[in-house]
Write a protein that binds this DNA or RNA. Structure first.
Lengths: 232, 232
DNA sequence: CAAATCAATTGATAAATGTCAAATGCCGAG
DNA sequence: CTCGGCATTTGACATTTATCAATTGATTTG
């Protein structure tokens, strides 16, 4: 593994406080691999052999049942995924596929569990990470249960605008059909939802969004930190 | 605190492995209180001052936005709730109210965080608990995004049947209007959904459910451990 | 560049879900 | 026991969302 990546991983909240020896031990069994776009990295139901870390690119976590499927979340560098399955030594609940060319580090789950038992700083970091993950899903569950698809889109746009720097014009960061799935709707309805936001000053050109009237959109969307602020 | 409750709490996975001194320290600051039904114990957005443990009765976790509200989960004895907020020292994401007369233990959050730093067995137990909570929410999210309300009800009935002992006749464990909210629908539609399951052999009399043809219902519901098995 | 491919949009329609109002049924207080 | 209150059910209707088919638009590839 290149030294720069080694250091990048070390800097993650999850690993930054652990003992050197333990981090080195973890990395010894780890390996890094490049994947092309649209590769299925893991499949739900399989045993969780590796903790994954996205070093570059991006990964879609999705799930299927009875012929349907849905995007659950997107993982961006640099962060881990399927930590809970690794810790519990339980099957993956979600599948994962690369959205673009991606570089992924793989750490054997049994190593993670072993070091977790030996290093209490690491254990503490895992707690913080899991608590964060848990709260994120709760927020997204509230978004789904309390809002219509139009409201979900409006709030998504406000969140994405913020992530992209806060300007009135910004880019969607993934395809509309995946956005539709993330928002729990269909591509057709997403398209109509964009139209439905025109009265609030939202203009769409391809993946470029313009928020013509911030106040109008916010009054409609009613963003709430207990749903939309993923940093807390 | 009565000795029997002290021991019941000690037996929880969360506390069973920690050092005696630490457990005693935690319990010193804790207190136990009886609440009548329908009391709001915590309100979303407030700072998380206490980790709560339901000793008897039951508690509804719910959330509101823009005049709507929804039931997120039910907490039954003996287990904790709002662990993630306590650990992160972040505001509650959900409100909680007693569903019936309930006995609740309250442990100051700062004590939990302090002991968490000092006792690595406790830290490990928290990891396991949080991983479990996380996976439960993911399952419930999959249920919501991948299934229609009829399918959610069918699978709910199968889960509840199992929890109640597996017989063909069993009782719903809470009011239908709350069940509707948990399932992400309205009381009116829940009522129609029960009718919609008649062709699969489901009969409803008040809160008594009869599953006339297990195979028919299961073929329709298509239960899946990665969504419906909350033990793994 | 042109053809092929795939995403996105649009229109028409169907299905699911929500809302409102009224009726029914259940349960506890007096 | 009877009444009143509340949960539940039902019916009619509105809204939202999904589905299907066709078209448009953008991008890739030979």
């Amino acid at each position: 593994m290149p030294d720069s990546e080694y250091r990048d991983i070390r800097k993650l909240d999850l690993f930054s406080q652990m003992a050197d020896a333990h981090f080195t031990a973890l990395m010894r069994g780890a390996y890094v691999q490049n994947f092309p776009a649209q590769i299925e990295l893991i499949t739900e139901g399989e045993p969780s052999d590796f903790l994954h870390i996205v070093l570059s690119g991006s990964v879609d976590l999705f799930s299927a049942w009875n012929g349907r499927d849905t995007s659950m979340a997107t993982v961006r560098p640099i962060s881990t995924f399927i930590l809970a399955a690794t810790i519990k030594d339980a099957p993956y609940l979600m599948s994962a596929r690369t959205l673009e060319k991606s570089r992924i580090a793989l750490i054997p789950s049994q190593d993670v569990r072993a070091i977790f038992d030996a290093d209490s700083n690491f254990a503490r970091a895992i707690v913080t990470e899991l608590a964060q993950c848990y709260r994120s899903v709760i927020k997204s569950q509230k978004d789904l249960k309390l809002r219509t698809s139009l409201e979900r889109l409006a709030n998504y746009l406000l969140r994405q605008q913020k992530r992209a720097g806060g300007r009135a014009v910004f880019e969607l960061d993934f395809e509309k059909r995946r956005l539709a799935s993330v928002l729990g709707t269909t591509p057709e309805n997403l398209s109509r939802a964009f139209k439905g936001l025109q009265p609030y000053g939202v203009t769409v050109t391809g993946s470029r969004i313009t928020i013509g009237n911030q106040g109008d959109l916010e009054r409609f969307a009613k963003p709430n930190p207990l749903i939309d602020d993923f940093s807390m």
